[in-house]
């Protein structure tokens, strides 16, 4: 019993992290039809941003709890600085082109980001310790968990609900949904598509950077963090169905719990359990668990 509880809890924590990152990926795909390879690079930038912002605000004499806010600020700063550069400066010239071609463009952006990040921040590790010590430790079952890690579950829920609310309950969100369904008709009706695209991409970058920022206290922020993030978050959105927010949530949960199960019971399989899950899901649901209905084109 205790074991099952631990597996579920560990899986849930891992899933929260996955979900925050995958949410941005699935949102960008949903609106812009771009599977963004550079997502991992933006994640890494978020981590570096937090590593700069947290000590910066601490240096200004801000109280300790402000470090949590500082990570939000860092993620927002990354989004404001980088999103227009990539979307307005590059991606918009390729809309309507082959998905694969755009995938390659984002791959090129990823390669460039990787070295630019290294040039700016060097190879030496950065650490952000403060935020993780803020929320204390909690005894769950027979083990100790760090309050911060558990709080990530809450953050994931807030992000998910926030994006859902933004899309379904606000004016701009509803316009975005219209653009997703019918970009040309929306444009004809006077919607400024470019603005919607930039906004959606910006939110996607923000979520990637937020994932990185809130992971930074758990890791050593240094080059090489971005690659492993990409493939797992790709797997999550594929399992869930591209462009689907509940899909990303369920996908993250499945992957998280499957991985936790593997660590306890099948450690030898941990390296490919995510891919096994992906193959299994795709065999039964060829387009992922949550698929928007599409018209057949004749």
């Amino acid at each position: 019993m205790d074991l099952i509880f631990t597996i579920l809890l560990d899986g849930l924590i891992y899933a929260s992290w996955l979900f925050i990152v995958a949410l941005g990926l699935t949102l960008v795909f949903g609106v812009l039809k771009i599977l963004n390879f550079a997502h991992g690079g933006l994640y890494a930038l978020g981590a570096y941003g937090a590593a700069i912002a947290v000590p910066f605000f601490a240096g200004l004499g801000m109280p300790e709890w402000f470090s949590l806010l500082a990570m939000f600020i860092a993620a927002a700063a990354v989004a404001i600085l980088i999103a227009p550069l990539i979307e307005r400066g590059l991606l918009r010239y390729f809309y309507g082109r082959d998905e694969v071609l755009i995938l390659l463009i984002t791959y090129a952006v990823f390669l460039i980001l990787e070295d630019v990040t290294k040039m700016i921040f060097g190879v030496n590790p950065y650490y952000v310790f403060e935020p993780r010590n803020l929320l204390g430790n909690v005894e769950m079952g027979s083990l100790f968990y760090v309050g911060y890690d558990l709080a990530l579950i809450g953050l994931a829920i807030v992000c998910g609900l926030g994006v859902w609310f933004g899309l379904n309950r606000t004016r701009i969100g509803k316009i975005t949904l219209a653009v997703i369904k019918e970009p040309e008709v929306s444009q004809a009706m006077g919607v400024n598509i470019a603005r919607i695209y930039l906004l959606a991409f910006g939110v996607g970058v923000f979520l990637a950077a937020l994932g990185g920022a809130f992971t930074s206290p758990l890791i050593s922020v240094q080059p090489g963090n971005s690659v492993s993030v990409i493939v797992v978050s790709f797997a999550v959105v594929i399992i869930g169905g591209l462009g689907s927010i509940p899909g990303a949530a369920i996908g993250a949960l499945i992957v998280g719990i499957a991985r936790a199960f593997a660590v306890y019971e099948l450690p030898e399989a941990e390296i490919f359990i995510i891919y096994l899950v992906m193959v299994a899901v795709l065999i039964f649901r060829p387009e992922g668990l949550f698929t928007p209905i599409k018209a057949r084109k004749i």
């Binding site: 790709f234 797997a235 594929i238 490919f272 891919y275 096994l276 193959v279 795709l282 060829p286």
Partner: peptide, 25 residues
């Protein structure tokens, strides 16, 4: 063979990664 687009890409990728995982073992 019945998959298309990004799903075909990702399914083939997943299979190759499973092979990678098995070979490293």
């Amino acid at each position: 063979a019945r998959y298309r687009g990004i799903f075909f890409a990702m399914l083939t990728m997943a299979l190759s990664m499973v092979a990678y995982g098995v070979l490293t073992k």
